[in-house]
């Protein structure tokens, strides 16, 4: 301890303290402040850049999600439209079929009616024709029959012969 005190130089101590304090203040003004500020600024910059990158990434994700959603909706809409179209088509076809069938039925009925009427009128005509024809025929036959006297006589004789039996 005594040796330590013997080595201790008060002058050097004073000079060192003064110079060191001066050095601290000079360095603070010219070096440490600018250095630490620059480092801080840079770190803030890096932090900001990272944060904004993260934001951009999130936004991108959101956009992607939106895109996906829109795409999905569009797809669903398309699906629906196709389905509607298909339904419409089948409905149209079936409607058309029904209408055609109805028309055809109606036409058939009409045709049948017409046929029936024609048939009736034809029958009536035929009947009248048959009547007149039969009258004519009968007239002719009778005329013809009656013209042949021999034969008439023969018939009459035959009939008379039969009549003698009863």
């Amino acid at each position: 301890m005594e040796k330590l005190l013997g080595e201790f130089s008060l002058g050097l101590f004073i000079l060192q303290s003064a110079l060191f304090i001066l050095l601290v203040f000079l360095l603070k003004k010219f070096a440490w402040k600018p250095i630490l500020n620059a480092i801080n600024e840079r770190e803030e910059g890096i932090k900001d850049a990272l944060a904004s990158a993260e934001d951009a990434r999130k936004e991108m994700e959101n956009l992607n999600a939106d895109n996906e959603r829109i795409l999905k909706e569009a797809r669903a809409e398309r699906e629906m439209m196709i389905k509607e179209a298909r339904d419409l088509k089948t409905k149209l076809i079936s409607d058309a079929k029904e209408e055609a069938k109805a028309t055809a039925d109606k036409m058939i009925v009409q045709a049948q009616e017409a046929i029936e009427n024609e048939k009736k009128s034809a029958m009536a005509e035929l009947k009248s024709q048959v009547a007149s024809l039969s009258v004519e025929i009968a007239e002719k036959v009778v005329k013809d029959e009656l013209s042949n006297k021999d034969k008439q006589f023969k018939i009459v004789e035959d009939m008379l012969g039969e009549a003698t039996l009863n």
């Binding site: 050095l23 070096a31 440490w32 600018p34």
Partner: peptide, 9 residues
């Protein structure tokens, strides 16, 4: 130190 760190700053 002054020269070194001033130039760094």
């Amino acid at each position: 130190m002054l020269l070194l760190f001033r130039s760094l700053g």
